[in-house]
C-alpha cells in the first residue's frame, strides 16, 4: 500500500521532533504517561458509571422539585390574575355607586325614560300614590278642624 500525503507529512513532522530529542526519549515520555495498572481503567469506568447513575437520581429529584415549582408559579399567577380582576370589579362598582343623581345629565334621564316607558308609568303611579297620601291626610285634618269650629 502506498503512503498517503498525510503519512508523508506525518513522518516529516515526527522526524523534526525526533531530531531534537531522539526517538527513545519520546517513547519513554509516552511510556510514563501510560504507566497505569491494568485494573485502573476498569475502576475508572465503574466510577464514571456510578457517577452517572448518581447524577440521574439527582436529576429526577430535581425534576420533581422543578415541576412543583412550576405548579407553584402557575398557581400564584392565577391567584394574581383573579385578585386583580376582583379588585378592578369592586373598584368599578364603587365608582358607579358614587355617581349621584345630580351628576347624570337630564338628557340621559330623558332617554332612559323614553326607552323604558313601563318604568316611567310605574314611577308615575308610585309618585301619584305617594303624593295622594299627604293630600288625603291634609283633607282629614281639614275636616277635623272644621268640625271643631262648628261645635264652638
Amino acid at each position: 500500500m502506498q503512503p498517503t500525503d498525510n503519512d508523508i507529512t506525518l513522518n516529516e513532522d515526527k522526524a523534526q521532533v525526533e531530531a531534537l530529542f531522539g526517538k527513545q526519549s519520546l517513547a519513554q515520555f509516552e511510556e510514563e504517561q501510560q504507566a497505569r495498572s491494568d485494573s485502573f481503567f476498569d475502576t475508572q469506568a465503574a466510577q464514571i458509571l456510578a457517577d452517572i447513575r448518581k447524577n440521574q437520581k439527582k436529576k429526577s429529584k430535581l425534576y420533581s422539585i422543578g415541576s412543583f415549582r412550576q405548579l407553584a408559579i402557575a398557581a400564584s399567577f392565577i391567584i394574581f390574575i383573579a385578585a386583580t380582576f376582583i379588585f378592578i370589579q369592586s373598584k368599578q362598582q364603587n365608582e358607579i355607586a358614587k355617581i349621584s343623581i345630580e351628576e347624570i345629565p337630564s338628557e340621559e334621564i330623558d332617554n332612559y325614560l323614553v326607552s323604558n316607558d313601563w318604568v316611567n308609568e310605574l314611577d308615575w303611579e308610585n309618585t301619584t300614590l305617594k303624593e295622594a297620601l299627604p293630600i288625603e291626610a291634609l283633607s282629614n285634618a281639614f275636616i277635623k278642624d272644621s268640625n271643631k269650629n262648628e261645635k264652638n
Partner: peptide
C-alpha cells in the same frame, strides 16, 4: 511531578535530554 513519576517507573530518567524534553513540553 515528572521526576516523581520517572522515579516510580521501571525506567528512571536516564539522560539530560529526557528532562529537557519534559521541560520543553
Amino acid at each position: 511531578d515528572y521526576e516523581q513519576a520517572a522515579s516510580s517507573t521501571d525506567h528512571p530518567k536516564s539522560s539530560q535530554i529526557q528532562i529537557t524534553l519534559e521541560t520543553a513540553i
